[in-house]
Simulated scan of single mutants.
Amino acid sequence: MATPDFVRELRTQVGSQLLFLPGVTALVFDDRGRLLLNRRSDTGNWAVLGGIVEPGEQPADAAAREVLEETGVRVAVERLVAVLTSEEVNYPNGDLAQFLSVVFRCRAVSGEARVADDESLEVGWFALDALPKLSERSLAVIACAAGDGPAWFRAPLS
């Protein structure tokens, strides 16, 4: 996975200790109501799209950038879906991180879904009733995005 330069720079100062980082998740729907997912190259698992917000970047812009970089699809960010923290992540090199993720519902506006960088093994559109195996957290935010309720920001998703 591509580690942003600012995180690499921080790691030279703090080593492997826990970093709390800003992240985004983009739940991208097409005009048929299908969801765009990627199969991650680091885990081999299907996942929702997302990444780290760069310094000075607005979260909605980061979500659109991440989708384009990972899949070649341009999106319109439609609304805030959730704000939540991740579990602590322990990377194979010993680095620790936790992410504050701002989750957006997005609409695909152009581009053909394809593997566009080294972060994905596959990308694909899935009907909500035919999703591949996903984490409980991913399923919970997808459910939030599929509805029209207010943004979720309370107790942990279960």
Rank of each mutant, 00 (worst) to 15 (best):
S101M: 15
A60L: 13
V24F: 10
S16R: 07
F6C: 07
E57A: 00
V123Y: 04
S110Y: 01
E66D: 07
V28H: 06
T12Q: 15
T12K: 13
F6D: 11
R34N: 08
R34E: 11
N38L: 15
N38A: 13
T85G: 05
G33V: 09
V83M: 06
V109W: 09
P132I: 03
W46Y: 12
G72Q: 01
L27D: 10
E66P: 00
E112C: 05
W152T: 11
L19E: 13
L121N: 02
N45I: 02
E9C: 09
A140Q: 14
L121W: 00
R107S: 10
L96T: 01
L19P: 12
D117E: 01
R79S: 05
P22D: 15
A62D: 07
L134Q: 03
V141Y: 11
P55W: 02
P156N: 04
A108I: 00
A143K: 14
L134S: 04
I52A: 10
W46Q: 14
S101W: 01
P59E: 04
R74D: 08
E66A: 10
P22F: 08
N45A: 15
E136P: 09
V102F: 13
T25V: 10
T43K: 00
V81W: 00
G56F: 03
S135R: 08
S16L: 07
D148M: 09
D61T: 13
T71M: 00
D31Y: 11
N90Y: 08
M1E: 06
A151E: 03
K133Y: 09
L80P: 02
R79G: 11
R8W: 03
L131G: 00
S41D: 03
C144T: 07
D148P: 00
A155F: 09
F153H: 10
A143S: 14
T43D: 10
G124A: 08
L19C: 09
T85N: 12
L84Y: 12
A47S: 14
R40Y: 04
A155P: 04
L139G: 03
C144P: 05
R114D: 11
N90G: 13
V103F: 11
E9D: 15
F153Y: 05
L37S: 10
A155I: 10
T12S: 13
R8D: 14
T43C: 04
T71F: 05
A82H: 12
N45M: 11
G111C: 07
R105A: 14
L84T: 14
G23D: 14
F29C: 05
D61M: 12
V24S: 08
L19Y: 01
V115W: 02
R40V: 05
V28G: 12
P132G: 02
A60T: 10
V115Q: 06
G15K: 09
E70C: 00
D117W: 09
E112M: 05
R39I: 12
T43Y: 03
L121C: 00
V67I: 08
P22L: 07
A97I: 03
